[in-house]
């Protein structure tokens, strides 16, 4: 085991996860009692569609052929998914891949900003809390962080929507881009996008509360360590100590919680995009659930999972660059 490079193992694990999720979606659609495939065939037949034609339609939409035995249908399905064919949406009558591909950048836009801003705030606040530990600032900020941690992001989203959008009219109440402005690389459009994305990004900032508490704990631990005393005895400047000795060591363990946040935020995008009617991945996933549009729903589910898995893979592979001690190990070693 140990002889195999961890990067290869990590890659194998990613492939395994994607395979597991795809298989799960196949099992749910094809094998479960009362499964969507059977339901779709029956529904079409009831609408008076010729049984042969109905089965063809279902195959087109779900990329699973109802006539074939399960093992063959399964292999076909996997091949289809791998080649990017997720079937055809019933409600939108468009290929699932196409719908999701145009929604994806919007979700990534909101999520990446939420992640970076909330972790930046969390790290700075946590470091300050640790620096003034026990003081008024620390107590105040700790209480604030606890409160932030207790508020689900969607509750904050409601509050922002009610007060900043409906009451004060500072931000648009729904949508993802300004209407009547040509899409493209022009200032009004970019400004409009940022304007629409502000409230969703702000709602996700609740994550900064938990992050700041984690950072505070790490910093306090580093502050109590022996090498820091030695560094002070050596007469190193305060700047060197705080940036090279404290900040670096305290931030590194935050990486793991950063990784976990990626998955949680992707999941959270479903509720958030519903609240703000922001047409991203989560919005279409939810719309598909309401419409019982199974191809779009399963496609959205598979795609969100793949996106998260890839994000985690990239983050893990680059971890060695951030932490030289990890050399040949990934974030698991923490």
């Amino acid at each position: 085991m140990a002889t195999i490079d961890w990067r290869i193992r990590r890659l194998a694990q990613t492939v395994f996860t994607v395979w597991a999720v795809t298989t799960l979606s196949f099992v749910l659609v094809r094998l479960m009692p009362g499964n969507p495939m059977g339901a779709m065939v029956r529904q079409l037949e009831q609408q008076g569609v010729d049984p042969v034609r109905a089965r063809q339609l279902v195959e087109l939409r779900l990329t699973i052929d109802p006539n074939e035995p399960i093992p063959i249908a399964y292999v076909d399905y996997i091949v289809n998914v791998l080649s990017g064919n997720l079937g055809q949406s019933v409600y939108y009558a468009e290929p699932v891949t196409q719908i999701l591909a145009q929604a994806m950048p919007w979700t990534l836009f909101v999520l990446s900003w939420s992640l970076f801003i909330s972790f930046f705030i969390g790290i700075v606040a946590g470091a300050l809390m640790a620096y003034w530990e026990g003081g008024k600032f620390d107590v105040g900020l700790t209480s604030w962080a606890i409160l932030m941690g207790s508020i689900p992001y969607y509750v904050l989203a409601f509050l922002l929507l009610i007060f900043l959008a409906y009451r004060l009219n500072w931000f648009p109440t729904s949508g993802r881009a300004p209407t009547g402005v040509p899409a493209g690389f022009n200032w009004p459009f970019i400004k409009g996008i940022v304007h629409h994305a502000t409230l969703p990004v702000l709602s996700m900032l609740v994550a900064s509360g938990v992050a700041s508490l984690g950072m505070r704990g790490n910093s306090i631990r580093v502050l109590g360590s022996d090498y820091l005393r030695v560094a002070r005895l050596r007469g190193l400047s305060d700047t060197t100590i705080s940036t090279q000795y404290i900040a670096r060591n305290a931030v590194l363990p935050m990486y793991t919680s950063f990784l976990i946040s990626i998955g949680e935020m992707f999941g959270g995008s479903v509720v958030l995009e519903q609240v703000f009617q922001y047409r991203g991945l989560g919005y279409y996933l939810l719309a598909a659930t309401y419409q019982r549009d199974y191809p779009l729903m399963m496609g959205g589910f598979v795609l969100i999972t793949v996106a998260v898995v890839l994000a985690l893979l990239i983050a893990d592979l680059t971890y060695g660059l951030v932490d030289p001690r990890a050399g040949g190990q990934n974030s698991d070693s923490y």
Partner: peptide, 22 residues
């Protein structure tokens, strides 16, 4: 390996799909 799969899967969409289909 099983644990890693579950760590990687975003929980909320999975729960959503399961709640609807099961």
């Amino acid at each position: 390996s099983i644990t890693d799969v579950f760590i990687n899967i975003p929980a909320f969409p999975l729960v959503m799909v399961l709640a609807l289909l099961l």
